[in-house]
Design a protein around this nucleic acid. Structure first.
Length: 194
DNA sequence: TGAATGATGCGCT
DNA sequence: GCGCATCATTCAT
């Protein structure tokens, strides 16, 4: 079956529905070094002003602005002085929420990913949000792009996911009681928990 | 194989 | 200044 690019209506839904639905979908980025793609295997939901771990918890700022915008846009931010994290914005405009793409399995453009990451083996190439952005060459230049119009988007290639698990989100100190991390337990590329 | 730690820049208080 | 939706490296077991 032909790949189908996800439409805005896919993202314009409750984030806890969008997040698990993204597992098995394929992230595609037409970079200036070539086309890169990867099967998404781990995500986390960050939802609104009541989620203390969500960047939008303290209201609109210049950084978190994309989350407040319409669904189907990228939200890429810089963290820990050296890494970027890729999110896809969900829910309607004015309702700040997003899904963090934490890990994926390489599909197309493995050579470019390795080169971007300064790595020789594909071990842990995309297993973690910082690693994934590094391999894809994503930075704030790709922040707030339209996943329905720009060079980065997500496709449905009808890849099956048979073993979806959920857990607490990783790397946060608040909101740990919420089981808003979803992952494909059959994938070897899921990042290390705890 | 797991815990501790340093690297590193920027948004926000 | 502080803390961060991380990761590679180092050191201990």
């Amino acid at each position: 079956m032909k790949p189908v690019k996800l439409r805005r209506s896919f993202y314009n839904r409750p984030t806890l529905e969008v997040a698990p639905d993204l597992l098995g979908k394929v992230l595609v980025y037409h970079s200036d070094k070539g086309m890169l793609s990867a099967r998404i295997v781990e995500v986390e939901a960050y939802i609104g002003q009541d989620d203390p771990a969500c960047h939008a918890a303290r209201g609109l700022t210049n950084r978190n602005k994309p989350m407040f915008g319409p669904p189907g846009f990228t939200y890429i931010y810089f963290v820990y002085g050296m890494y970027h994290c890729l999110n896809v914005v969900t829910e309607s405009e004015g309702s700040p929420a997003a899904v963090l793409i934490r890990a994926a399995e390489p599909v197309d453009g493995l050579d470019v990913m390795l080169s971007n990451s300064f790595k020789k083996s594909n071990k842990n190439l995309l297993s973690g949000p910082g690693r994934l952005c590094r391999a894809f060459g994503l930075s704030r230049e790709q922040n707030d792009l339209d996943l329905t119009r720009d060079a980065i988007y997500i496709e449905n290639r009808n890849m099956k996911v048979t073993n979806i698990q959920r857990s607490a989100r990783i790397g946060i100190k608040v909101g740990c009681e919420l089981l808003w991390r979803f992952y494909d337990a059959d994938s070897t590329e899921v990042s290390n928990s705890r």
